[in-house]
């Protein structure tokens, strides 16, 4: 019969194995961050492959120009993917990314001009527009209790319409000074912004809001029972992601130096691709914006690799699609192996 003891020995395990269910700390760290680790490994491999191809073709290593243009090209997607991560972590999905980037990109092309102060104010206002767009999504999802996928499908259409209203024809211009600050064409200084995003992510991960975002992505009902305000958390998460998309719009305008109300459309789907490549679970509650940023850089590297491998650009999306499936399947397989290796 059981002892009348307050201690709980491992149920059913023999006493000579007191730590029956325990695993080394490293195993937990690897197992619980396998998505991130995989994303960064794929990124590393793709960088190596690209470097190899480039060196073979050009008889030199990729230099400042190649690195700078890769980083600058990736910035809008890296920011969009970071925003998408916040939404996906709450177990949502945001299809309006493209619309918000269209809109903010169009606004930037029209209003960015004049003095430094003026440009700073305009940039801040554009970020606010992104926040408002995200807030609308958040309110509809949080308070309206509507499914994220259909809400953002509808708001995508609204934001796209607004973008065309703002900038009916491609045009406008972005001052070169602005471009130099955001996407300096001479040095990969935009990596600084990536660093900021990573720092921001690490702070979020250690904040009450971060815990709340992860908790509702894990199990919304349980999170509510634990005292987490799910509606408020979702509204904040969507709003923050709106700000990030707007920042993506600014970077897009800065690197294109002019505006187009439809160039942002692609980011709806590519941000999802980056998030998936970054190891963020589409079922919510698991993942990291760092991974998603890595995912964004992976997609850029793939395009670079295809270019230097002389793949017909018409086939580009074929290889990208194939790569996405293979990456996800392999990622899942490695994840399973990591979990099984106890």
């Amino acid at each position: 019969m059981p002892r009348e003891s307050p201690d709980l020995a491992p149920a059913g395990a023999p006493d000579d194995e007191p730590a029956g269910t325990r695993r080394p700390r490293a195993a937990h760290i690897i197992g619980q961050n396998i998505g991130l680790i995989l994303a960064l490994s794929i990124l590393l491999v793709s960088v190596v492959v690209f470097t190899g191809l480039f060196a073979f073709e050009q008889r030199r290593l990729p230099g400042n120009f190649e690195i700078t243009s890769s980083v600058n090209n990736t910035m809008p997607l890296a920011l969009a993917a970071s925003g998408q991560t916040l939404v996906v972590l709450t177990r949502g999905i945001d299809l309006s990314v493209g619309g918000v980037i269209d809109l903010t990109n169009a606004l930037a092309a029209i209003f960015l001009a004049g003095s430094v102060l003026h440009m700073i104010v305009v940039s801040a206002l554009i970020l606010l527009v992104g926040a408002a767009a995200g807030l609308l999504n958040g309110l509809l999802v949080g308070l309206g209790r509507l499914q994220p996928i259909v809400v953002t499908l509808a708001t995508l259409s609204i934001f796209q319409g607004l973008a065309i209203r703002v900038l009916p024809q491609p045009g406008g211009s972005v001052p070169t000074g602005y471009t130099a600050v955001l996407v300096n064409p001479n040095a990969p200084s935009a990596l600084l912004f990536v660093g900021l995003a990573v720092l921001g992510w690490m702070a979020l991960r250690r904040s009450r809001l971060g815990v709340a975002i992860f908790a509702i992505g894990n199990d919304e009902q349980a999170a509510i029972t634990l005292g987490i305000r799910a509606q408020r958390t979702k509204i904040i998460a969507y709003t923050l992601s709106g700000v990030l998309y707007a920042a993506g719009g600014l970077f897009l305008a800065a690197s294109a130096t002019s505006g187009d109300a439809t160039t942002g459309d692609v980011y709806t789907l590519t941000s999802i691709v980056a998030v998936v490549l970054g190891g963020v679970s589409l079922f919510g509650g698991r993942g990291s914006a760092i991974g998603a940023i890595g995912g964004a850089f992976i997609t850029t590297m793939i395009v670079n690799i295809l270019f230097f491998a002389h793949i017909d650009p018409l086939y580009q999306s074929f290889y990208e699609g194939l790569f996405l499936v293979i990456a996800v399947v392999l990622g899942a397989a490695v994840g399973r192996l990591a979990r099984r290796a106890r």
Binding site: I93, L269, I272, V273, V276, L282, F283, D312, L314, Y315, Q316, S317, F318, Y319, E320, G321, L322, L324, V325, V328, V329, A332
Partner: peptide, 21 residues
Amino acid sequence: GVPAVVMTLAMNGIVEGLALG
């Protein structure tokens, strides 16, 4: 076990690439 969103998104690209190519 690929999520439907990912698989069909990828298939869209695959078919696009093939059709264009």
